[in-house]
Nucleic acid binder design. Structure first.
Ligand SMILES: [Mn+2]
Ligand SMILES: [Mn+2]
Ligand SMILES: [Zn+2]
Ligand SMILES: [Zn+2]
Lengths: 148, 148
DNA sequence: GTATATTTGCAACTCGCTTGCAAAAAACTT
DNA sequence: AAGTTTTTTGCAAGCGAGTTGCAAATATAC
């Protein structure tokens, strides 16, 4: 627990435990560390980012992957794939479903607090972005797979 | 050249050569085969799909990857990433920019001829899709990277 | 506290995809 | 059309994010 801000730390810890319980995940050190990290900073973070922020040598990278997959599975965490072969993770607040833009050159990532293509692209142009492209994919369960 | 439809084959061949020239790519057998395949069927196709459709042992998989990357680079081909770690490719007709839906269960992919989220999701529900999610990412060049 | 079930660390492995290099083919030159 | 230069190809080895099998460690249930 931090010496500087014991109260806030404690609140985060309690919230993390509550979230893990609701997700039916047992309370372990790696899970608490990873989830509270994602709760404190917005992200999205690569696994490398996350390990860098975790207490040094506090857990294996396989554990980080396993925990993140479980969090995604139980909707605690959302994923983005802004660069090929690099998954990024952020805490999934269902009230604030949103998307991201990455700069094709410097790879800076920004979160967009909105979800309508044209409107977003107009806003991005005003912000100085050029050569904007988007990728939009849908995922669902088709009629055939619903029937039986 | 096909015995059944020599005219159509010849036209495709000419179109393919024209497209390669416009893209400043030299005219080679693998490039012609891959591009004409993508011109004939809509896709999107994985590299495995493409190799299966190519004349048996007609070229190495490394060549397929290299050609596809060049095609993407010169905007002849568009990519989609509907499943993690699996790239799919289709001919990029700029007049028909569109997106896709994949079934979470059977992985069937459908092309959507439109680009507005709400409208698309309504249409998909009418078609029998359930549990629809989408992924929307933007890519651009940020203000800082534009200046210097 | 003990028994049972779950999770972790480690190292080996998987799998799309990429790459170095010599041989082959295309493009350019005359 | 033949010779020269440049590009592309095939092959096999390599890369790297992510996964997995298993024994030891930890959490949960009783
Ligand atoms: Mn975000
Ligand atoms: Mn399509
Ligand atoms: Zn930038
Ligand atoms: Zn289906």
């Amino acid at each position: 627990m931090s010496i500087l801000n014991p109260k806030k730390e404690l609140l985060t810890e309690l919230k993390v435990i509550e979230l893990l319980k609701r997700a039916n995940l047992s309370i372990t050190a790696p899970r608490k560390n990873i989830l509270s990290l994602l709760l404190k900073e917005h992200g999205p973070f690569t696994v490398e980012d996350i390990i860098r922020r975790l207490p040094k040598n506090s857990c294996d990278q396989a554990t980080v992957y396993r925990c993140l997959n479980q969090f995604v599975e139980s909707s605690l965490v959302a994923t983005t794939f802004l660069e090929k072969d690099i998954a990024r993770f952020e805490f999934n607040d269902p009230e604030h479903h949103h998307h991201h833009i990455i700069c094709k050159i410097c790879k800076k990532i920004e979160s967009l607090h909105d979800c309508l293509i044209d409107k977003i692209e107009q806003g991005l142009k005003k912000k100085g972005y050029q050569d904007i492209e988007h990728r939009l994919e849908f995922f669902g369960i088709c009629a055939q797979c619903t029937k039986p």
